[in-house]
């Protein structure tokens, strides 16, 4: 693989049981330091693809390299913010304890400093289960960034956050991306976000339908092919607006 690719996938095939394969001959390269968005309709294999890139799932055919290594070997250099972090909300664990679980050598001061950047310094002694959806997503972002990952994977990270919160969240991701130089790979349903923040867009509907810069990919024809006519209409109206 090329040295300057943070992630490379070659001819990925994956199916669950006898169903139609959820990933069908998917190949792409993600340059280092870029923000890449994976878009597509529900059930198009976006989250599955992310799990393959992370090494949580193994493809039946094809290969994945992350930072020139297998996903297993790249562990410790990548981080992940899930779509929905489910846990027992009654479980008494503070934000500080939660963050120190995955970063035991991180001092309280460093953690507090990071939380300050994310405008949630006050959450440090709070119980994780008492946080709002937006605060929890920021804590998860902080957890992912504390290890200075080279590649950050986000799976619809603003799901469950209101519009203003989502906007702030993506500005934060963009800021962290600039500050740390990490490669960001995110699954997103929000085409506005993709247009504003992504350098590269991968359009997935079990197969890779198209890929390129947002202005090349987020066209009526591409979106119609990917989502059907409603999305193309949305895009048209959005442009008019």
């Amino acid at each position: 693989m090329q040295d300057r690719n943070a992630v490379q996938a070659e001819h990925l095939w994956l199916s669950f049981g006898s169903d139609e394969p959820i990933l069908q001959d998917v190949s792409f390269s993600i340059p280092e330091g870029s923000i890449t968005a994976i878009i597509g309709p529900n059930g198009s294999g976006k989250t599955t693809l992310l799990k393959v890139l992370l090494g949580f799932l193994s493809p039946q055919k094809g290969k994945v390299w992350v930072l020139g290594k297998t996903p297993q070997q790249a562990r410790g250099e990548v981080a992940y913010v899930p779509q929905r972090f489910t846990f027992d909300k009654t479980f008494p664990i503070t934000v500080l304890e939660f963050l120190q679980l995955s970063h035991p050598h991180c001092s309280k001061e460093k953690i507090a400093q990071y939380l300050g950047h994310l405008s949630i310094a006050e959450t440090l002694p709070m119980k994780l289960g008492s946080l709002s959806g937006g605060q929890l997503q920021r804590v998860l972002i902080e957890r992912s960034m504390l290890g200075d990952p080279k590649v950050l994977f986000l799976d619809e990270p603003s799901a469950g956050i209101d519009i203003a919160g989502a906007q702030t969240f993506y500005e934060l991701v963009s800021h962290l991306h600039r500050e740390h130089g990490s490669t960001v790979v995110m699954v997103s349903h929000e085409l506005d976000v993709v247009a504003n923040y992504a350098d590269l867009v991968l359009c997935l509907n079990r197969k890779l339908v198209c890929q390129g810069r947002p202005e090349q990919v987020l066209t009526s024809d591409s979106l119609k092919e990917l989502y059907g006519k409603e999305a193309a209409l949305y895009h048209h109206r959005h442009q008019e607006g």
Binding site: L54, G55, F56, R75, G76, V78, A79, Y80, P82, F85, F87, F91, I93, F98, L101, S102, P104, R143, G147
Partner: peptide, 18 residues
């Protein structure tokens, strides 16, 4: 204790942190 807690709370992250 740390590994057991991480494992119980978040297996995916535990895996990513080796």
């Amino acid at each position: 204790v740390r590994q057991f807690t991480l494992l119980a709370l978040d297996k995916d992250t535990a895996w990513l942190y080796k």
